[in-house]
Amino acid sequence: MANNGSHITEYRVLAKILLILMFCTFLTISVTSFHLGALTVTVALLIAGFKSFLVLSYFMHLKYESLLLRILVSMVFVLFIVIVLITFIDYSFR
């Protein structure tokens, strides 16, 4: 076997993920049409975060990749969140 143990994601799994992604998109649109202030941004970003999790795990096959790769990818997101936090702390205490 050339690609030892490589996982094949079935068509119907991919199609289901697309449906969830579409649903989330319309959810975002309807949520943002209510003006809830800061809450709107939070909800929109949470939904976007969930959508990117689905794309990363299923479309980008991360769910079936090695632990090393999964840890590396999560570390990049942790790094980004740390950068955001530090910048915002800096910005608010100037």
Binding site: T25, L45, S52, V55
Partner: peptide
Amino acid sequence: HLVDLIWIFLFPLLYLIS
């Protein structure tokens, strides 16, 4: 997929959140 991933954040931030 990366291109799609970036758009997932670009779309709500630029078009929707007001």
